[in-house]
Computed example of a mutant assay.
Amino acid sequence: MVSENHAARRQVWGAYWASGRLHSCTNAPDRNYEGAVGDFWDGFFAVTRNGARILDLATGNGALPLRVHRTLEGRARVDAIDLAALSPAWYEPARHTEIRFHAGIGMEELPFEDAMFDEVVSQFGFEYADRPRALSEALRVAAPGARLAFVMHHAESVLVNVGHEELEHHAWLGSDAGLLPAALAIVPCLAAIRAGSAPSSAAFAARERYNRAMDELARRASVSKAPDLLLEAREHVHRIIAATGQDASSATAALGRYIRDLEGSRVRTREMVDHALTVSELHSLTEACQRLRPGMRITSAELRQAEGVVAWSWVAGAASAADQTG
């Protein structure tokens, strides 16, 4: 049975993947993981043999299966699993015949036979699992000589640092002094005025509260290294307020939907920050793998680009395979 926590996570992530995004980084645009992450996978899949069977853990909307399809042109079979419902907009079963998606499956209990896969991979997904159980399962389904490759969130990466700041923005937006309660308070006052009522003292107070929140948002955005959430909230809320008519219900409902969307974003960002790996946690993963599968060659590295560190890479396999991937 799926736990309440798993059920809640499935709902949050399922809604996110339904938006069509290719990845789990809620603070970055879709670019199919260009830069250091893309370079890592290009190097890894460059030595994937024809006919290989690949398992992608926590696939999301299938960024890795899509990359495999484009790189290997159908010469490798991919099974991709995720706990959430999946909505890969790019996926065409008749065209991508080598790819199969499996929704509602956690990494800790894989429905595959032992020694079934030549490669087990994950991009910003493995770190969200119960890692000891997920690693045990990944090794169980990995064939002798198989390669494992995970790109995982780094606790000191640019993305995680942005995540920490955005969590502060989320907290302020929903606070008593924040923009969202101020917007909810002003909507019925605006509707009443637009229906012909004279402005009341409550309306003046709501307007002042809303203006103070907007001023504070501008101040926070001006000193933030990651102001995108604040700026997007300002634009979205202002658009709803401006469109408020004589009936407050439509604007109130629109604000409610936006608040729910923001809560989903907050949960995803919180998960990213909480599951990003420190150096010691990365070493623990390596040590656990060496205990479970003695003799594997394991390498890990920080993936860096102009902005700074973006992720950890972690590769395990036979010495020759690991050497080929750097």
Rank of each mutant, 00 (worst) to 15 (best):
S3V: 00
E4W: 14
W13F: 14
A15W: 07
Y16V: 03
Y16W: 13
A18D: 06
L22R: 07
L22H: 04
L22N: 07
H23F: 02
T26E: 13
A28W: 05
R31P: 03
N32C: 09
A36P: 01
G43F: 00
R49K: 15
R53N: 11
I54H: 04
L55D: 06
L57W: 09
A63G: 02
A63E: 09
R67Q: 03
E73W: 01
R77A: 08
D79I: 03
A80E: 06
I81P: 01
I81L: 12
L83M: 12
A84G: 06
S87L: 11
S87A: 15
S87T: 12
P88F: 00
P93K: 15
A94L: 13
I99E: 05
G104C: 07
G104E: 06
G106R: 04
M107Y: 12
M107Q: 06
L110A: 03
L110G: 01
L110H: 00
M116Y: 10
D118I: 04
E119C: 08
S122E: 07
G125S: 03
D130V: 15
L135P: 05
L135V: 11
S136C: 15
E137N: 08
E137G: 01
E137P: 10
V141C: 03
P144H: 05
R147L: 02
A149F: 02
A155C: 10
E156K: 10
V158I: 14
L159R: 07
N161I: 02
V162G: 05
G163K: 07
G163Y: 01
E166N: 12
W172P: 10
W172L: 02
L173T: 01
D176W: 07
G178I: 01
A183Q: 05
A183V: 12
A185D: 11
P188M: 04
A191Q: 06
A192F: 06
I193G: 09
P199A: 09
S200Q: 02
S200H: 02
R209M: 09
N211L: 15
R212K: 02
D215Y: 08
A218L: 14
A221L: 02
V223M: 12
V223I: 13
K225F: 05
A226P: 04
L229I: 00
L229K: 04
L231R: 14
E232M: 08
A233D: 04
A242R: 11
A243T: 05
G245Q: 01
A248K: 01
S249G: 14
T252I: 08
T252Y: 06
G256A: 10
I259S: 08
I259V: 04
L262V: 07
L262S: 10
E263Y: 03
G264A: 07
R268F: 04
R270A: 13
E271S: 15
D274K: 13
H275W: 07
A276M: 10
L277M: 04
L277P: 02
V279M: 05
S280N: 03
L282F: 03
S284M: 13
L285I: 08
E287W: 12
E287H: 07
A288Y: 10
Q290P: 11
G295Y: 13
R297V: 09
I298Y: 14
S300L: 11
S300C: 15
A301R: 15
E302F: 15
R304N: 09
R304M: 14
R304D: 02
A311G: 08
S313A: 11
S313E: 10
G317I: 00
G317A: 03
G317V: 08
A318L: 13
A319N: 02
S320F: 15
D323K: 06
Q324Y: 06
